[in-house]
Design a protein around this nucleic acid. Sequence first.
DNA 1: GTTAGCACTCGACTTAGATGAGTGCTAACC
DNA 2: GGTTAGCACTCATCTAAGTCGAGTGCTAAC
Lengths: 344, 344
Amino acid sequence: MLTERQRLILNAIVDDYIRSAEPVGSRSISKRGDVGYSPATIRNEMADLEDLGFLEQPHTSAGRIPSHKGYRYYVDHLEPIYQGLPTELRSLRNYFAEKLNASEQVIQHAAMILSHITNYTSILLGPEVFHTSLRHFQLLSLNETTAVAIIVTSTGQVESKTVSVPPGVSVSEMEKVVNLLNSKLVNVPLYKLKTRLYRELGQEMERHLTNFEEMIGILDNIFVDTDTDQRVYLSGATNMLTQPEFKDVEKVKDILDLLEETPTLMKMMAATQGSAGIQVRIGTENDHEAFANCSLITATYSLDGEALGTIGILGPTRMEYARVMSLLGILSKDLTTMLSKLYK
Amino acid sequence: MLTERQRLILNAIVDDYIRSAEPVGSRSISKRGDVGYSPATIRNEMADLEDLGFLEQPHTSAGRIPSHKGYRYYVDHLEPIYQGLPTELRSLRNYFAEKLNASEQVIQHAAMILSHITNYTSILLGPEVFHTSLRHFQLLSLNETTAVAIIVTSTGQVESKTVSVPPGVSVSEMEKVVNLLNSKLVNVPLYKLKTRLYRELGQEMERHLTNFEEMIGILDNIFVDTDTDQRVYLSGATNMLTQPEFKDVEKVKDILDLLEETPTLMKMMAATQGSAGIQVRIGTENDHEAFANCSLITATYSLDGEALGTIGILGPTRMEYARVMSLLGILSKDLTTMLSKLYK
DNA sequence: GTTAGCACTCGACTTAGATGAGTGCTAACC
DNA sequence: GGTTAGCACTCATCTAAGTCGAGTGCTAAC
């Protein structure tokens, strides 16, 4: 579709623009060592590239900037960099190796390090509960009317919920239910928990319990959203403010607002989770108007072939695709390896 | 110290400035109904107030804006508003009444509502673990090398931590320790947990366990920061961007950066926790340079007279002190009442 | 096919002038 | 003596005009 020379020039323009955030002129491309043509020749090719939709001109007498289509082409034809291990990743890798247990604070900290080394915003989607199974269930009464339910998953995540206990439900009854659940439902995937609970244990429970109805009410309350619970960790949102294209408060406001909405973030990250490898969504490819000038690069890490969580880096469309894609690639592989070692 | 007329004028200026974010001139004060003097008279008083340090002039021919001292005086002499229940608070109150159990999501949601109705940034410091006591302890092994420790407090908070188990420590040994802890340390305040553990159970554990050293290592790891663990919930950070004084990205950047640092936030909020009632820290009274143009209003809620957590609203120094102070006052009382009902 | 030259475009920056909100001071008024 | 009207003065903000320069498109020559 594009000639080799066009590809070369487009590449040079995107590279330059990523670095400078200013429209790129023909002369500056010519002066770089790697494109051995005069400004005039490059100008001709630039005009063609603009006709083809790969470049845009902010105004008549300015240089060119890449269009979304231009970025897309650039990303799709990117050559992998980082043969060796980048020194910047070393700290993060060490950190994970040290604390293999993926507790909340560890993930939050990882998000922080990631946003620091990239200077972009990092979004981590924590291990998905969906595909993990029940390891242990417990119900602890705090006083006559309140109890805490605790669910531990096979990957060591702990979810808890405070529930109110209707009068008439005794501690011994709760114990019965807990024992029943622990003996029958351990190793059942969380997303099947609710159906299995009703189908297989309904009758048994009805037989053993005097306050069947109330008990079911409590359990309902506990398991109501175990099948969708997932956590997002955000760090470096303010890095958006350092990008020259967002020096106007109006423009960042919407972006930061969206970043504060955890459910939206979750949906956005989850949308990429289906396909393996590194995903790049450029500008309007993200289905949010606020992100029309942002790109999101994501990678998924997994356990036993099942996608567990997602790592994402959000930056302006003019972001360092090559570097970030390599980083995420290495990191997601690292995580996958470590997790499989941990829960083999 | 100030004459009645000076107080009246200062009040009018602060009020106007809070509304408009523009320097206030003598004429506009005169035109408000409540100060019945001509611009000239007001100008004279304004000059005096500036000499006394209550007002400042951005430049020679501009109006006056309140100095930090001016805000301080205004706040200290503020008359309580909101005799009735403000309608804006109703939704929040209902929300709490519905879900008395103070789980994480509830607090996060409360922070969101609060930032929405105030249009400022809300910072909630979750129930402090420090003064709560141990309700239940549990250690669940996930595989040969990993286990999850779960601590439930008397207020129903659940803390968990993944720990690695050194080879040689058996499941039955862990059970022994768990039983020992549950029988001896229930109802001990968390901050005394570590010392009690070593002093009173050290010998007993040494007698019963074959891998005493390793076990101590694990427990150390679990309890290492139980005495300081507290959570902050932040919402509406982007509301800062809507304030005209922060329309320059440079100025907000530092503020938002600081808001992302949870430990700093925690320290800041915790600093106000000693004294009861509503605290107002104006400008440089917050010990962070980034907050030199911000004010923080906080209120503490408690259980049995012990401070449990803190609610805070952060805005520009030019913030609606009267309204926010009233809101927080009502809310903290509500929370205190509800908590005492819940855990009587 | 490539390059040099040149007229042209247009945003960004600079300067000068006009505008108006607001002050400080003086003198008159009650 | 406290209060107010009047007036000269200040200074940020806005506007218009002018300059600058980076960059283009086109043509003609290599």
